[in-house]
């Protein structure tokens, strides 16, 4: 009895388009990769694979969260001072940019499933463009920091006038963490760009919507990481 229930849960899909009906799956046709029987099956594996990968990515940034938390206990004053000196308005605008881009790509996935290919493609490329805006703003911020004399490793003129313990640590982690995040943004843009191209020129059939979903889910994770980096570096 138990077995049967499990199987049902595994193969019968919910109403949501994430899991198409089994009949649909047969219509979609055979899998393109060796170990799977159906494309539906393969899509699920790909999605699970992406999520497991994202779990791994989250732990990568988890190291920064642990460091930031610990150093905040050790250098409460220094961190407060550094946060106040940060480019809050630019950083906050960047948060808004990423939130908008996430919305765009989520809507893109939605409309692609409905078959509105062009709109979906346009939204994907809007997302890529917003990613570019994010990176541009980020570079502007770096430029401002360098102009002020804030360099990673506690180097630069700014530190001559500011010597609260913890400032050097804050800025080094800031540069390393946001730099790593910017690398993820870049990878996400490339990923979305490739999928977006095949959406636009029609080479991505609806049955392969999961490829767009994978890129979108990756992009959302980049957003989620930033949602936490933003308050830690800019707000308080």
């Amino acid at each position: 009895m138990h077995t049967q229930r499990r199987r049902l849960k595994d193969t019968t899909m919910s109403e949501h388009p994430v899991h198409r009906s089994a009949a649909d799956a047969v219509a979609i046709g055979p899998a393109t990769s060796e170990p799977f029987d159906t494309l539906l099956h393969q899509a699920h594996a790909a999605r699970l694979g992406m999520w497991v990968f994202l779990a791994s990515e989250l732990l990568l940034f988890g190291g920064f969260f642990a460091l930031l938390t610990a150093y905040r206990f050790e250098h409460a004053d220094g961190f407060r001072e550094a946060v106040h000196a940060n480019t809050k308005v630019l950083g906050s605008m960047n948060t808004l940019v990423l939130l908008t881009s996430s919305t765009c790509v989520a809507v893109a996935v939605h409309v692609f499933r409905e078959g509105r290919r062009r709109l979906a493609g346009a939204l994907v490329f809007t997302t890529v463009a917003l990613g570019a805006v994010f990176l541009t703003l980020k570079m502007t911020e770096y430029g401002l920091h360098f102009h002020e004399g804030i360099f990673p490793g506690g180097h630069g003129e700014w530190f001559l006038h500011h010597d609260t313990p913890g400032l050097a640590t804050f800025w080094t982690i800031y540069f390393v963490a946001t730099g790593l995040h910017a690398m993820h943004v870049t990878v996400g843009m490339i990923f979305l760009g490739i999928v977006g191209r095949s959406v636009l020129n029609g080479r991505l059939p609806r049955a392969h919507a999961h490829r767009l979903e994978l890129a979108a889910v990756y992009w959302h994770l980049v957003d989620v990481v930033w949602i936490f980096l933003w308050p830690l570096f800019y707000l308080a």
Binding site: L67, G154, P165, G166, A168, T169, I173
Partner: peptide
């Protein structure tokens, strides 16, 4: 010097 005591 992320872990360097001389820089906090």
């Amino acid at each position: 010097g992320i872990f360097d005591p001389s820089r906090g």
